[in-house]
């Protein structure tokens, strides 16, 4: 059974049809890639799946449940985590504080208990802190724990963001251009990381990615969007060599050999 399913999502902003009947299916433990030129509607699709945009038509399903009407935080509570193209972190806080903030849902105490400082809240905070430190340790980011996010270089921000979204304890991870700002070698290693994350945390991943070698290496299935429409889908090798995809990426008069 598919974990996450977008069924014929369409959305229009004024005169622009940003997405037209986009259907995407993500199966359990799959890594699904979404590629396409700039402005193809990839992030728009993500925004409809996570609930920032309400589609004009179509629906979003999560484990057999229609979640089209749910709010962003309600979808997060179901186990849908996401990262952002321009880094989704609380910049004024430290790295550890970000991981604590991200554990909002797993903190089992109320606001008032927190203000009074009840034993339950204090205990729970200790557990959360330990979980945050463990996660940073596993991702080898421990040295950054007390650093304010605002001062970090872009590459570190991307890593911290992944650690933070893992702290939300997701089942499905939506990554928006995880390799942006990374060099070829780094994005190569990012591929290893993603495969390991899937194995260690039992994750299902959908990612928007421009770096095609990375997509080909880690993805089980790839969707290609162009001008808000699904251009092609299938196994990575298949999509990569699809004539329509090649044309969308490289223009009209390029032979297939040049594709990637």
């Amino acid at each position: 059974m598919s974990v996450l399913e977008a069924r014929e999502l369409s959305i229009r902003f004024g005169g622009v049809q940003a997405a037209r009947e986009v259907s995407i299916t993500v199966g359990e433990f799959e890594i699904v890639g979404i590629i396409g030129p700039n402005g193809a509607g990839k992030t728009t699709t993500f925004n409809m799946i996570t609930g920032f945009y309400t589609p004009n038509s179509g629906s979003v399903w999560y484990r057999g449940q229609d979640i089209t009407g749910l709010k962003v935080h309600e979808r997060a509570a179901l186990g849908i985590g996401r990262t952002f193209q321009n880094v989704g972190l609380v910049k004024g806080s430290t790295v550890r504080e970000n991981l604590l903030t991200a554990q909002h849902l797993s903190a089992r105490y109320g606001v008032v208990a927190g203000i009074i400082g009840s034993p339950v809240a204090v205990d729970e905070e200790r557990v959360m802190r330990r979980r945050a430190d463990a996660l940073l340790e596993v991702l080898q980011l421990g040295r950054l724990a007390d650093t304010r996010v605002a001062g970090l270089p872009y590459g570190d921000l991307k890593r911290v963001e992944i650690a933070t979204v893992l702290a939300t304890d997701p089942e499905v991870l939506l990554l928006d251009e995880p390799s942006s700002g990374m060099g070829p070698e780094e994005s190569e290693r990012l591929g290893d990381v993603l495969l390991e994350l899937r194995r260690e945390f039992g994750l299902t991943i959908a990612m928007i990615e421009h770096h095609v070698p990375l997509v080909v290496r880690v993805c089980d299935y790839v969707y290609c969007l162009n001008f808000g429409e699904l251009l092609a889908e299938g196994r990575p090798e298949h999509v990569r060599n699809h004539p329509e995809v090649v044309r969308a990426y490289l223009g009209e008069d390029v032979d297939e050999e040049a594709a990637v």
């Binding site: 997060a76 989704g88 609380v90 004024g92 903030t101 400082g117």
Partner: peptide
């Protein structure tokens, strides 16, 4: 205490970026 517990952190997150806060599961 507020700022050292989940309520305060939720406030800081939603002040800076309500969208990110919502993806953390915070009811903005």
């Amino acid at each position: 205490r507020l700022m050292r517990s989940k309520g305060g952190r939720a406030l800081l997150a939603l002040r800076e970026n309500p969208r990110v806060a919502a993806t953390f599961g915070i009811n903005v």
